[in-house]
């Protein structure tokens, strides 16, 4: 956990040292105005000696651009549990959730199920709406008239630290 956070926060560690209580205030999840830019090199990676093509930097890539299509509707959430491992979503992963998307059948969604936020695969078929886990240990759930169910958002990416 500590390792992973260190990676995500990278440079933030320096700031953390400044604050006695260890908290960081006002660091935004993402801010389209302040892009985190990584250079893309037009040449292949060569380990050993500097490439003569280093001077030909094409443009800079912004991870926000890749992961976030609609900033005001995009939220990050943290996964707790192992019911979605089959979909490549593991405990403690970070999910990018876009609320502006319509939940098509087959998509992975964040649902409000009986008052709780939960991540499931959403499947519509034969007039039945079902929420599937991606782990044989967890049975599928059918949405009936008695279930308090609401789509909170559609998951677009999973960020998994190694």
């Amino acid at each position: 956990m500590a390792d992973r956070q260190e990676k995500i926060e990278g440079m933030l560690d320096m700031v953390q040292a400044w604050k006695s209580d260890g908290s960081i205030e006002g660091v935004y999840c993402f801010n389209p105005g302040e892009k985190v830019l990584r250079p893309l090199f037009a040449c292949g990676v060569s380990a050993g000696f500097p490439s003569p093509a280093d001077d030909y930097i094409e443009r800079q890539l912004d991870l926000n651009e890749l992961l976030i299509r609609n900033p005001p509707a995009t939220f990050f959430v943290r996964v707790t549990g192992d019911s979605m491992t089959g979909a490549g979503i593991n405990h403690d992963d970070l999910l990018v959730v876009d609320r502006s998307l319509e939940p098509a059948s087959g998509r992975i969604i964040i649902a409000v199920l009986n008052g709780e936020l939960t991540v499931k695969r959403f499947v519509l078929g034969d007039g039945i709406c079902r929420l599937l886990a991606e782990n044989p240990d967890y049975p599928p759930q059918e949405i009936t008239a008695d279930t308090t169910f609401e789509v909170w958002g559609v998951v677009t990416s999973v960020i998994h630290s190694l």
Binding site: I24, V77, R78
Partner: peptide
């Protein structure tokens, strides 16, 4: 928590309703 502005405060979503209930929120 500062759900949307601090990494350590992100909202948690349950993956596994029975096993992990106490951690869901």
């Amino acid at each position: 928590p500062a759900y949307t502005t601090r990494w350590e405060d992100l909202p948690q979503v349950g993956a596994g309703s029975e096993k992990c209930q106490e951690n869901v929120l």
